[in-house]
């Protein structure tokens, strides 16, 4: 069992390494992608400088919380696209029958698929996010907590994309929907939750998981709250378990009597 885990980890890391090596074939492009993505993200801070000239706090956030919000979102989005970029194009693999090559390998199918690509610009997102969190003036403990929350954010975002992407086992045309949902999460996750009230607030906390991925974590960083932390951890576990279950359910369908048009 332990060796199996070790071997699986070895394959995943090698896969990540090779993915990055692929992107590094052209070093200039590689670095430009990363640096420009950081600049690109940094530009958005202008928006907040302007808004904070108008009011001192927005939706209960000051500049510091906005930096935490952006830091967590960018880092989670980045980490998810570095490690599991393929989850965001999963429907395409399913529909065009490209899971076959993972099925003939003696390794975990899901991990094999997810780690088979990396988005370079995501490295820029991740570094930017971490840098922003460093500038927030968190104590060492706070920063470690932030790292944990990046991980939970990554898990939630990836699991959500996996859940939506796996629907392609049943419905062919979910690809765009899934992408729109992910972009929707990111859009909401870059504005303070305080400006949303009523139904939209409910939706953000319970249906599309922006609240769990980013809003709760920002509040935890601003003022530690064990209850919130456990909620986030529990939710991350629950969502990923559900997503993995749906994926394997779909994979069984892929292997058994699926419709022919989705195959070959």
């Amino acid at each position: 069992m332990l060796t199996a885990v070790k071997n699986q980890t070895r394959v995943c890391l090698l896969s990540l390494k090779y993915n990055i090596m692929r992107e590094m074939v052209n070093k200039v492009t590689f670095l430009m992608n990363i640096i420009f993505m950081m600049l690109n993200n940094a530009c958005i801070l202008i928006q907040w400088f302007i808004l904070f000239r108008l009011r001192e706090e927005i939706g209960g956030y000051t500049m510091r919380e906005i930096m935490m919000l952006w830091g967590l979102t960018a880092a989670s989005f980045g980490l998810s696209h570095i490690l599991f970029a393929r989850v965001f194009s999963l429907p395409e693999l399913i529909v065009s029958g490209k899971l076959d090559s993972y099925l003939v390998q003696p390794k975990n199918v899901l991990l094999g698929v997810l780690t088979s690509a990396t988005a370079v610009s995501a490295i820029g997102d991740f570094l930017y996010g971490v840098a922003l969190l460093l500038f927030c003036g968190l104590a060492v403990g706070g920063f470690l907590l932030a790292l944990l929350l990046i991980v939970t954010g990554t898990v939630i975002l990836t699991a959500f994309a996996l859940l939506f992407g796996s629907l392609a086992f049943w419905f062919v045309r979910v690809e765009i929907l899934g992408n729109q949902m992910v972009m929707g999460i990111v859009s909401f996750a870059t504005y303070p939750d305080g400006i949303f009230q009523g139904i939209s607030r409910f939706l953000l906390y319970f249906i599309i998981p922006v609240g769990m991925a980013v809003y709760h974590p920002v509040h935890i960083l601003a003022e530690f709250d064990a209850g919130r932390l456990f909620t986030v951890l529990g939710y991350a576990c629950l969502l990923s378990t559900a997503a993995v279950a749906v994926f394997y359910r779909g994979l069984r369908r892929y292997s058994s009597s699926s419709l022919m048009e989705a195959r070959m």
Binding site: N26, V28, T29, M32, N33, I35, F36, M37, L39, N40, C43, I44, I46, Q47, I50, R53, L54, S121
Partner: peptide
């Protein structure tokens, strides 16, 4: 250059931040 996309990002972001989400009167 191999990939001009990063320049597109910056140009887009300039348009977005300065001209799209606010009118320019809001700047100093």
């Amino acid at each position: 250059i191999e990939d001009a996309t990063p320049f597109q990002w910056l140009y887009d972001k300039l348009i977005l931040v300065v001209g799209t989400i606010f009118p320019i009167e809001i700047f100093p």
